[in-house]
Write a protein that binds this DNA or RNA. Structure first.
Lengths: 198, 198
DNA sequence: CGCGACGTTGATTTGCCTCAACGATTGTGG
DNA sequence: CCACAATCGTTGAGGCAAATCAACGTCGCG
């Protein structure tokens, strides 16, 4: 591999624009490679949220701990996805979520300020990021619709269909907390589905 | 008012950038003013979604009709908000939602293609729109968290606190379908809250 | 091995839904 | 100006999906 193939190509993969070596060097200087182990907490609730993370390998999730002490998973992220507490990151408030590493991970982190610097120095990145934002927007809209209009069983089936690559990494109690049900209920749903297949 | 004060200033209100007269004329040419009456359906499910709408006056909502025939409200929009079926608008698929006018409204509509044209001709608008997107993103994230972690009663109380300006326009059955409960349940919740205040 | 993490199963409770009937309010035509 | 219907919200009775609480397998690992 030539040295010109930078991790930046992985992050900006799918961007139709091409970047000069200088632009790549600049962008590269703003990202920091970090690694985490299964079980590590990348960000704690109430901390300042200054970074977002691009996932190169591994798996992470964000979750809320509600007043009653229960966990509610907001997002999973695997290879090629971004993750952060986006409420905190975008509105510059302290975190409400935890970011947890659930499978040994290699990430590229970038701060909010550096994202802005990149937009200013290499404006064409802004379009790419806007389109990414739009796609995320679409999937969150779909999630809201699913929560409003589907039963727990339907949501589980759709989850396994939509994210087979995530299912293999995560525990059932992660999925339950993503679907908004208890582990016991998910267990019964899984049993029901297994029986239907016989 | 000088003629240089265009409706564009209303739409791009809060944008710190200033625009030349020519830029404003160009952007203006891409927007079309439209009016709707209470009860009008601005967009039907299964239609192509080519436009988004900026609300100048009035009130609208988007909703899904699920297989079981029930309505689920995704979004309300009043003065200063944008509305569309953003799943369809961003992913260029047919609408899954209806857009309904629930209070006589004046809107400025703009097509997906014209939005792109504006970005190309007046690139500085892209940043403003991206920031708007980020703010929407935050509120949808909060909605997902609320649905996952709060009771119907908590969600109702938070809704009335967060959107007092919307509450005055909409019927209780609109709110119920936004919160993901039935009108009967909302009625009982309201009764309970009223009793607590005595 | 023995312990802890994870998943399952059963019994019971509960929050919300469903179905049905009944006010209250508003708008409309005779 | 009243009669009437339509729309919207409320109330009650009964049912159901999922939560809660508790106990018990099972697997992997120090």
């Amino acid at each position: 591999m030539p040295t010109s193939t930078s991790f930046i190509h992985e992050i900006y993969h799918g961007d139709s624009l091409s970047y000069t070596k200088e632009e790549i060097r600049f962008i590269e200087s703003k990202y920091e490679k970090v690694t985490f182990c299964k079980g590590d907490i990348v960000l704690h609730a109430n901390e300042k949220v200054d970074h977002q993370y691009f996932v190169s390998t591994g798996c992470l999730r964000t979750y809320l701990i509600s007043k009653s002490g229960k966990e509610h998973t907001v997002q999973f992220a695997i290879k090629g996805w971004w993750i952060s507490d986006y409420i905190g990151f975008f509105s510059e408030t302290n975190a409400t979520l935890f970011i947890e590493c659930i499978e040994d991970a290699t990430l590229y982190k970038v701060s909010r300020d550096d994202v802005e610097d990149i937009f200013n120095k290499v404006p064409k990145t802004e379009r790419f990021i806007r389109k990414k934002l739009q796609r995320s927007f679409v999937s969150f809209q779909k999630r809201i619709l699913a929560n409003l209009s589907q039963t727990a069983k339907e949501r589980y089936i759709n989850f396994t269909n939509d994210y087979p690559n995530i299912e293999q990494f995560v525990k059932n109690y992660h999925i339950a907390s993503y679907l908004g049900i208890t582990t016991e209920s998910l267990s019964r749903i899984r049993k029901e589905i297994a029986q239907e297949r016989s």
